[in-house]
Design a protein around this nucleic acid. Structure first.
Lengths: 117, 117
DNA sequence: GACAGTAGTACCCATTGGGTACTATGGACG
DNA sequence: CGTCCATAGTACCCAATGGGTACTACTGTC
């Protein structure tokens, strides 16, 4: 993955291959990302709880999903060095703002599958 | 992919692994699907035009993306048996209604990448 | 006959998605 | 002292998918 900056395109345009916002679209336009961000909207959630909430996700995939979200500044990871050790994931302000469009998407899906033909 | 029906879950819930709406979420929560549906919002578009508009997509990936959208009833494929033969893709009513949440998502991405750190 | 424009498909490969089993840590239990 | 629990991942492996390039098919035009 090349390191792109906004200089690579005049204006942010998801239809432009070189635009860095493609990376962000690719990140968010993903089943697990959309579900994870939704699950974090009500406040910090621990790894194990997320794993139960996102039914069917494996720990490895959850781990990599969260890491990608963290790298893009959408999620914060906080370690509590207690016993037993636990970790809380929470949305950054940016992550919170991304929650709205993703919630629309999840809602649309749920509302438009009532009659799956 | 198993053939699931809404009977597999009490209510449509994207967080339930067995819910058929997972398939739909997986389909829509995808970079190319989100871009393709956006590109079709202004009316029918031909294969080659789509290929140019979705910069960076290869014909194979575009073809499979459109086929999946068609299978899920979001897109119609119309062949014009003229010379040279051409094909128009257009949104079904369901596809049109899916356009709104996806537009929100694309807009959010473009508006929140102005300062890519 | 060669070439152009249409919409794909065939073939191949690298990347990723994904599952299962395992690690590390420390406390409670017996 | 050994075992089991809980925590949050990682290691390892495999299959599916994403993706690129080259090619096909059809017909009209030059």
């Amino acid at each position: 993955m090349k390191a792109l900056t906004t200089d690579d395109c005049d204006r942010n345009d998801v239809y432009a291959a070189a635009c860095p916002c493609r990376d962000m679209l690719d990140l968010l336009a993903n089943k697990w990302s959309a579900l994870a961000i939704g699950a974090l909207e009500d406040g910090p959630v621990r790894f194990g709880v997320l794993k139960n909430q996102l039914q069917g996700i494996s720990p490895k995939v959850l781990s990599s999903t969260l890491r990608k979200l963290e790298e893009h500044g959408l999620v914060d990871r906080t370690v509590f060095a207690e016993v037993p050790l636990h970790v809380e994931y929470s949305l950054t302000p940016l992550g919170k703002s991304a929650g709205a469009p993703l919630a629309h998407l999840r809602d649309w899906v749920e509302e438009n599958m009532t009659s799956p033909v």
